[in-house]
């Protein structure tokens, strides 16, 4: 098993390639999702605020221009 992870002595190069790629891809996914979540919260707050002043907007989760 440890032979497998050694990868004929190149393990460090191979595993760090995969690890760096995985970390970067997960990071971009998480920041993108977080940005979307934050924009939804902001939009909801703004729309309820506007609706309290003149009740006509539909309560959509996302922008519908």
């Amino acid at each position: 098993m440890s032979d497998y992870f050694m990868m004929e002595g190149y393990g460090l190069y191979i595993w760090s390639s995969y690890a760096i790629t995985a970390v970067a891809m997960v990071f971009l996914l998480v920041t993108s999702l977080r940005g979307l979540g934050q924009s939804r919260i902001e939009l909801d707050q703004l729309e309820t605020l506007l609706k309290s002043r003149r009740p006509r907007r539909s309560k959509s989760r996302d922008a519908r221009p």
């Binding site: 993108s32 924009s39 996302d62 922008a63 221009p65």
Partner: peptide
Amino acid sequence: YYFIILAIRVRSELNERRIRAL
């Protein structure tokens, strides 16, 4: 993966623009 991220980011950018307009 690219298309998933694209959909997420386009959606949040549309929200941002709607917020600015509001």
